[in-house]
Design a protein around this nucleic acid. Structure first.
Lengths: 163, 163
DNA sequence: CATGAAATGTTTCAAAA
DNA sequence: TTTTGAAACATTTCATG
């Protein structure tokens, strides 16, 4: 008896299918992974409860929402004390313009992917949300020409298929 | 009659709900946006056909898949001719380790978010997939301590609710 | 993990406002 | 465009093998 059950190849197939299309019906999912619908449904429920599956999200065309420009803002903080780090992250997490916040080790402290209306919106955001913050020492903005996500699952596991 | 129908506030509510939870049932979605199930279903179908909704993807805990390390690799190309750019992007798009590829304007040409098993995997990837490529002039790798996505929808539109 | 049965939800369609 | 209602199909839960 183990605390966290290891994944087998069927679990991985389920995760791959739901990653490709999160709105696949349970019947189709069951057929694709070679299970009965009831067994498949129970697997998916287990994977959600175990927090292996952490969420399902629709992708929306940014242009349709009025997002005309995206950028990566590299941020260097003045001091690296816990209170500054926490305050800065909490602040950014509440901005609608922030798509993803990367906390990194290197020349910069953060890489912040932002989505804005246009260049004047970006300028306002750079001032208001970054430069004028007391924790921030320096920022550098790079425009994003385009970006593409990879929706395949990288799996670096030895699977437990026989127990 | 217009080529592409503008979105109204109900469409936006649908997009927000599906972004928060792509596996919500049509009945619940209809209730949350204040439509009959049949009308709601037709809206969602329209939004998919119009490529406003571009996909639905499950999120999976990286640790469970054996991903022990993530990094952002900044890449500068030697020459910026179309053939090199296309070859490099096509190459990266086929790597399972690549999570997102950002093509940017600035000091670097690309920011590549990668997910690997461990530091030796990252070292191999840096050599094989980047440094040894003829198009690549220079790379700089930053470890990602953690990153958080924002699943709210930024909407910068004047909505068309009365026609 | 599979089967089968029962309750609930989904999907499509025609008709009407 | 949206709603309603009806019919066909799918989902979900549960008891049983």
């Amino acid at each position: 008896m183990q605390g966290k059950a290891p994944l087998d190849s069927t679990d991985i197939r389920i995760l791959r299918c739901l990653r490709k299309n999160a709105r696949i019906s349970n019947k189709d999912l069951a057929r694709q992974v070679g299970l009965a619908p009831s067994s498949c449904l129970e697997r998916v429920r287990r994977l959600r409860l175990a927090r292996v599956l952490t969420g399902y999200h629709a992708d929306v065309d940014p242009n349709v929402l009025g997002i005309g420009l995206q950028a990566m803002v590299a941020v260097r903080l003045s001091r690296h004390v816990r209170s500054d780090v926490d305050a800065f992250e909490a602040h950014l997490a509440r901005l609608p313009e922030v798509v993803t916040l990367f906390h990194v080790a290197g020349a910069n402290d953060y890489l912040v992917h932002v989505a804005v209306r246009d260049s004047s919106h970006l300028r306002d955001l750079a001032l208001t949300a970054f430069t004028e913050r007391p924790e921030v020492d320096h920022i550098e903005t790079q425009l994003i020409f385009h970006h593409q996500r990879n929706h395949e699952l990288p799996v670096y596991l030895d699977l437990d298929d026989d127990e």
